[in-house]
Amino acid sequence: MIVVMKVGSPELEIERVSTELQEWGLTPEKIIGKHKVVIGLVGDTASLDPLQIQEISPWIEEVLRVEKPFKRASLEFRNGESSQVIVPTPDGAVSFGKNHPVVVVAGPCSVENEGMIVETAKRVKAAGAKFLRGGAYKPRTSPYAFQGHGESALELLAAAREATGLGIITEVMDAADLEKIAEVADVVQVGARNMQNFALLKKVGAQNKPVLLKRGMSATIDEWLMAAEYILAAGNPNVILCERGIRTFDLHYVRNTLDLSVLPVLRSLTHLPVMIDPSHGTGKAEYVPDMAKAAIAAGTDSLMIEVHPNPAKALSDGPQSLTPERFDHLMQELEVMAKVMGRWAESPMAIA
């Protein structure tokens, strides 16, 4: 349920309404929109009469029920306004969201050694990326495959961050590793295989670093948004959704099926920013550029693209990784498209 306050509502009145609703056993959350303030109500609201709440104050414009099972993640909860996730990085704050430039995240699947990760970081930054992705801990289908270097790889990511000023995105697989990962990561990633690891979702929701939540390989959109709800309900409002391909039929040709239809669907359901990962979504480097461009055209807020200096020798996901040279070329193509849509850093929208 949400309480929409009238334009110009005094701050003291907003606080008074929130306090009274809290006395009813509800949890009010103030959401400051472009023109109005909305108070989101979480708790047992099923038996409440919206008219009863409306009588609390003449400054209340309307009271609406949130019909979706995901409350905080729903677009209704913010009265139809998209949210943004602002991430501080050494080079300055970067905003993920519908009304901001497209944020490009790039780097290797896993951190292999210091020379490789620092050099890759320098190359992707020079091309225009704002974040470096790299796995310190890697979930693999086979127990015999490379699992990542673990804690020592976090030190290498920190070195790459120091050398370039890029923000860092890396995955957490175990809540026991969360604290040390959060010391290095600017955004903590929950991977597809852990999308419904509810204990882990609660833990990442209880810490203050933004969270990148990847869609599970067989997850419905509702299941994905309910997973985001776990993070939001635990107190962390900064969630970015990442579509990375789902499992369908033609695995002979592509690793997964990249579901770009989630972009318009999610725009109608949630206020959260959306990222597209065409690398995992296709599994083949030759398909990544076309799907990245398609994602820009469909309105993505961010792209995650795997880049490796020598994909043939990568310890994981080499077939889907672009070389730095191919990434340079792709970024030039993406810039042309995104500028047309007003979604590139030099656009007027970035300045506003």
Rank of each mutant, 00 (worst) to 15 (best):
G150P: 04
E151I: 14
E155Q: 14
L157C: 11
L157Q: 04
A158G: 01
A158Q: 14
A160C: 07
A163K: 13
A163L: 04
T164P: 00
L166H: 09
G167A: 05
I168Y: 04
I169H: 02
T170E: 00
V172W: 00
V172Y: 00
M173K: 01
A176C: 02
A176R: 14
D177A: 10
L178G: 02
L178W: 04
E179L: 00
K180H: 02
I181C: 02
I181Q: 00
I181F: 03
E183K: 15
E183G: 03
V184P: 00
A185H: 02
D186Q: 01
Q189K: 00
V190M: 02
G191T: 05
A192W: 13
A192I: 12
M195D: 02
N197Q: 04
L200E: 07
L200D: 05
L201E: 06
L201R: 09
K202N: 07
K202R: 15
K202A: 08
K203V: 03
K203M: 06
V204A: 06
G205M: 03
A206H: 12
N208H: 14
K209D: 01
L213Y: 08
L213R: 03
M217R: 08
A219Y: 11
T220N: 13
T220P: 13
T220Y: 14
I221E: 08
E223T: 12
E223M: 08
M226F: 15
A228W: 12
A228D: 05
A228K: 02
Y230M: 06
I231H: 07
A234E: 03
G235T: 00
N236L: 01
P237Y: 10
N238R: 10
V239M: 04
V239L: 09
I240R: 05
I240F: 04
C242H: 05
E243G: 10
R244G: 04
R244C: 09
G245F: 10
I246F: 04
I246A: 08
R247P: 05
R247Q: 10
R247H: 10
T248G: 05
F249L: 11
F249Y: 14
F249T: 10
L251W: 08
L251S: 12
H252K: 14
Y253I: 05
V254N: 08
R255C: 09
R255Q: 11
N256V: 11
T257D: 03
L258A: 05
D259A: 09
L260M: 09
V262R: 08
P264W: 04
V265L: 15
L266A: 14
L266E: 05
R267N: 11
S268G: 08
H271G: 11
M275D: 01
I276R: 05
I276V: 15
D277F: 13
P278D: 04
P278I: 11
S279P: 08
G281D: 02
G281T: 12
G281V: 13
T282P: 13
G283R: 12
K284D: 03
K284E: 06
K284R: 15
Y287A: 13
